[in-house]
Write a protein that binds this DNA or RNA. Structure first.
Lengths: 110, 110
DNA sequence: CGTGTAAGGAATTCTGACACG
DNA sequence: CGTGTAAGGAATTCTGACACG
């Protein structure tokens, strides 16, 4: 996946009506999930909401959980946990890389 | 690039207003280029045009050529030539692959 | 809590046409 | 040829609120 492709996934260009078609959710539901901090659309100059493909996928996950009876507050907690795990993983990888670099320079410079 | 990423680039989900912002072209210009067969948006259920990121990139190419004074008829010809070259290349590659396979089986089976 | 709906206003989109050149 | 614009209508989007539960 190139940098350009990433920008496709995260570029906020889809209007709420299309998102509704794509996800099967009503526009009312989509706006409500925003109110509950589950999703963050961008606003265009005149105030209409714009979503990315990543947002659409996130909304589909939310829809699945809601169908299983999970409340929005619960979904929010799960998402925050997931993000935390991701951050921890990234820090761990960073630390391991630093360790390798240190070991490398110890051997090389002495 | 995975199959999913391809679908992002080619999925027609962007309304003409956003395309106008993204490309700097007026909606009048975008509709006109469609009239001249340079671009093929999809129509939603109620008739509004929907564009993909690939369409947006194509429109930016068109904009560049128009700035250089190239007429739409000329741009259309160039695009058709380009597509033809692409097809020829693909056929050539296919033929070469077939040749390799033939050579392979000749040695193996006799 | 989560979602539907009617309300009123603003902005978008569509088509066919006239204008300029 | 390529683009702007006014025209009239239809559909979208927005917000705050009431309703149900």
């Amino acid at each position: 996946m190139t940098v350009e492709d990433l920008s496709y996934k995260d570029k906020k260009v889809i209007s709420i009506g299309i998102v509704s078609e794509l996800t099967g959710l009503s526009v009312r539901q989509i706006r409500y999930y925003e109110e509950r901090k589950l999703i963050y659309p961008q606003r265009s100059s005149r105030g209409t909401r714009k979503y990315s493909f990543a947002d659409v996928e996130r909304l589909m996950e939310i829809a699945n959980k809601r169908e299983d009876g999970v409340q929005t507050a619960e979904i929010l907690k799960d998402m925050r946990k997931k993000e935390q795990r991701l951050k921890n993983d990234q820090q761990l990888r960073k630390k391991m890389l630093e360790g390798q670099l240190n070991a490398h320079f110890k051997y090389k410079n002495r």
